[in-house]
Amino acid sequence: MTTSQIIRSLEPTQDNLLAILHRVQDANPANFLDQPELREVADYLELPYSFVYGVATFYSMFSVKPRGRHVVRVCASPPCHLMGGRTIRDELREYLGVEFGDTTEDGLFTLELSSCLGTCGIAPAMMIDGEIFGNLDGVRLREILDRKRREEP
């Protein structure tokens, strides 16, 4: 589907804005909402560009900056923190060689912090592209990321 088709796959009512943005972003190879896309969404819903931009920047799942192929969102909420989250965050930074908010040089991973992912029973946890990984430790973390790397064509 082209971006226009994706946008038009939902009714042009304002309450569909978030859903449309989700779909558009999911289809964007760099995992973000670029300016032409946001403009087209705004035109379709007859909303001011500033409004749509304001919405897109409010929610942490949306990005208006290009991201890597995989978005690694590591939970930074207290329960995960308590279960060793800080170590996990440090290990991730070190292993990927980037700070939070940044993308690895090979364009594979963008590292982000997240609030509770709703999987605190297996804290510390992280989410990669919608998939949950829990009971993390340094070893498992490397395994998971290595596997993601290997899966790349």
Partner: peptide, 8 residues
């Protein structure tokens, strides 16, 4: 509607 709040 030129201005908006950006970010959170």
């Amino acid at each position: 509607a030129n201005l908006t709040r950006i970010g959170r």
